[in-house]
Structure formats: C-alpha cells, structure tokens
Design a protein around this nucleic acid. Structure first.
Lengths: 214, 214
DNA sequence: CGCTCTCTTGATAGACTTCAATGTTAGTGG
DNA sequence: CCACTAACATTGAAGTCTATCAAGAGAGCG
C-alpha cells in the first residue's frame, strides 16, 4: 500500500520486477527540465505497470502513484518462467502491452487534436469506461481522487483552464465532480463531446460496450 | 512499392498479415470527425508497422504512406509460427512493439508539454537519429520528403505556424530544409532546443549515441 | 489555530489558429 | 519552349483559445 505522490519506478532505473496495480491510482509520467510534467496514462486496478521492463532494460519514464494505491511486485524471473512455460500467458502479457500502447495513441490524438473541453470529456469517458470494465464503477458514479492539477498534467492544459472546463462540463449537465467522486449525468453527451469510441480499448463484451450499463 | 498518400491498413480492419516498411515513409494516424488528422508516428525502413495485429484483431488506427514507400507483407501465420518455434524471435517482436510504444509516449510528452519551436526541434532530432541508426542518413543530411502540412498533423500545430517555426529554426542556424532534404547545421543546439535524449529510443550502441557522427 | 493543499475567480498577456492572398516549384500537354 | 495546373511554401492581419499572474476562499490536518 503506497501513499499519494510516491514514485514506484523512475526513469533510468533497471527494474528486476514488475509492478501490478491492485487498487487505487497510479500513472506513467515524464518530466521536462522546466518542471513540466506530462502524465502518460492512468493505471488502475488490474494494470501491469511496467511489463515492458521484461524486454527493455532501462525505464524511459516514471511510474508513480496519484492517490493511495495498492500494488504487488512480481520478480522478472517469475514472469519469464511463466512466459516460456505457458505461451498463452506470454501472449496475454504481450497483448496487455499492446492495449497500453493503443491507449497512449488515443491520448496523443486527444492532446494533439482536441480542444480543452472535448479533451477533458474524452478523458472522463475513458476513465469511466475502464473503471467500469474492472468493476470499479458504481452505476454512473466512480471514485476519481484526481486533483485538477493532475488533470492538467494529464491533458496538457493549465490548471486554471481545467477548472473552467470542468465548470463548463458541470453547467452543461454532463458530469458532477466533488470530493473525489465523479458522476456521469449525461453519458451520451459526454461521449459525443469527447468523440469517444471504445474500439481502442480493445475490450470485447456482449453488447457494443459503448453505453453505460442501465 | 506504394505511392504517396496510400492507406495500407485502416481503422476497423482485421488484417491477416503484417506490413514491414523496407524503405520510404509511412505513418500511423487517426482522424477526428471534423477532418483533423493526428499522425502518431513516422515509420521508416525496418519498422514493422502493425505487429500489434497479431494479438489485437481490430485495427484501432490507420497506417498510410507519407511518401513513396516500399513495403513487404508477411502473413500472420508465418509470424505466429516464427514466434512459437523461435521464442527469441517472439521476444524481439515484442520488444519492437515496446519501443514503438515508448516513442509514442515521447510524442505525447512532446505534444502535451513542449511549445511549437521545441516540439519541432524534438521531432527533427528523433527523425534524424532513427534514420541514422538504420543507415539512412548521409552525415548530418537526410531525406525528409515530409510536407509542412504533414509536420502540422504530426505535431498538432497549424500549417502556418509550422512554416514560421521552421523559419525560426533556419534563422537560428539549427537546420536547413529544402526540396525534401534536411540538414542539421547545429546538432547540439537542436538537441538542446528539443531537450532530446535518446534513451526512449532504446538503441544501444558504442558511445552514448546522443551525438551526431563526426 | 495556523498550515497546506486544492479549488475558484478575474484580469492580462501571449502563443497559436484561422482566413485569405501571393509566390514558388515541378509536372503536363500543346 | 511555353502556357497551364496542382502542390506546396510563404506572408500578413485579425481573432481566440489557453496560459500566466495574482489573490482569495474552503477544506482537511496536526
């Protein structure tokens, strides 16, 4: 169990184990010399943080907690044995890293091509959907202990502007967000604003998966 | 051999083969409803475009050419056989997709946290370095048949502003760019401007790899 | 109770976009 | 060899989205 703002792995490290997020909030991030931080993705329950360290010796980014976070560490040796003895598991791990890459690409699209309002909407859609898939959503509500400063770092938008865009989303009746709890008030509108399409998450379920559970 | 502006794979496709870029320029990209395009990475000689389709059935992005481009297609069946029969090759393929993801993360940092000038500088550093690694650079010069509109789509900057930033880079004596040929005039300054660090490319060579060959 | 963190708000400034026009280059066909 | 066209590059002006600066208000905590 880690507290908030703890680094799990740092850029330049040569990990000998992988970190699995069991609950709470972590993220990948990178820093610039001027102190700017870019959060590269949120990691929630079930995410294998740095599976990549199995094949890439040196970490090219940091992994840290955003809120209190329960993690497990699995030695590389164990994972390597799993991968060689059970190719199916190896394939599943590989697939996991591919989905991770897909999400990063969508974030790149988000930051590179959408304006602030839609960008935030998209991030909320994705976060809700991912939480929902792993059973961490309560209907249309979910815990979201992410400060506006963190949202700023994740979206490449300034903190002040995040604040205003959140207000806009609230006023437009799309969401509610208070005390670390977010509630989706108008899923359709949120999806429309973010131009959110679940395809890139590569979750296959019954139904089309692009609607909130009723 | 494909011409310019051809799609190789489209979002939603279910490829049964992977595309290997032998020479020329391709890219991953995504579109928004309003017609905006985000280029997600450049693909050059040696890049296995859609290795991910081995494990993710449906394409979540497009792959297309930026200039004339020589590609080879390898059926999934062949690759799967390779992966199962020769685990080392499987590991190499996996590693390849991980490096790809690392580059995407750096692009996200680039677009999310750097201003236009430095963003362009970084893109040029990366492109030069990657070409140099695969032997496609001629000293400090390299073919760069990428229009300003494409650079705009790659960086999330408008075409007009790309033009101005290129002029600034030229005036500052960092680069030369004409007729699809780019020449680095001041590598140190370019690296500094882009805050470029090769680590994320995961190329290990003699020397530190962060300097142009003399 | 003071401290810190986070959220909020207003005013100002700036980076970048958009619009629109012009210049340049290369290719095509007569 | 020269019009003609299509891309692409360049330029100027105006507009706007977003950043920055600065300050105040709540909320949680030792």
């Amino acid at each position: 169990m880690l507290g908030k703002g703890q680094d799990i792995v740092r850029e330049g490290d040569r990990p000998s184990q992988c970190c699995l997020v069991l609950d709470g909030w972590a993220c990948r991030y990178k820093m610039l010399n001027d102190g700017a931080r870019q959060i590269l993705c949120f990691q929630i329950a079930g995410d294998f943080s740095d599976l990549q360290s199995l094949h890439l010796d040196v970490m090219d980014h940091n992994i840290g907690t955003l809120g209190s976070c329960m993690v497990a560490f699995v030695p590389h040796a164990v994972l390597r044995a799993l991968v060689t003895d059970y190719p199916r598991i190896g394939a599943a791990f590989w697939r996991d890293t591919l989905v991770d890459a897909s999400i990063t690409r969508e974030w790149l699209l988000n930051v590179g091509a959408r304006d602030a309002y839609n960008r935030l909407a998209h991030l909320l859609c994705e976060t809700y959907m991912r939480l929902q898939v792993v059973g961490k959503a309560d209907g249309l509500r979910f815990n979201f202990p992410i400060s506006q400063a963190m949202l700023a770092d994740a979206t490449g938008i300034s903190g002040v502007h995040i604040n205003r865009m959140l207000q806009a989303l609230r006023q437009d009746g799309l969401i509610t967000l208070r005390n670390g709890v977010c509630e989706v008030k108008d899923w359709e509108a949120l999806v429309h604003a973010g131009q959110f399409d679940t395809r890139y998450l590569h979750v296959y379920r019954n139904g089309n998966g692009n609607h909130a559970p009723s």
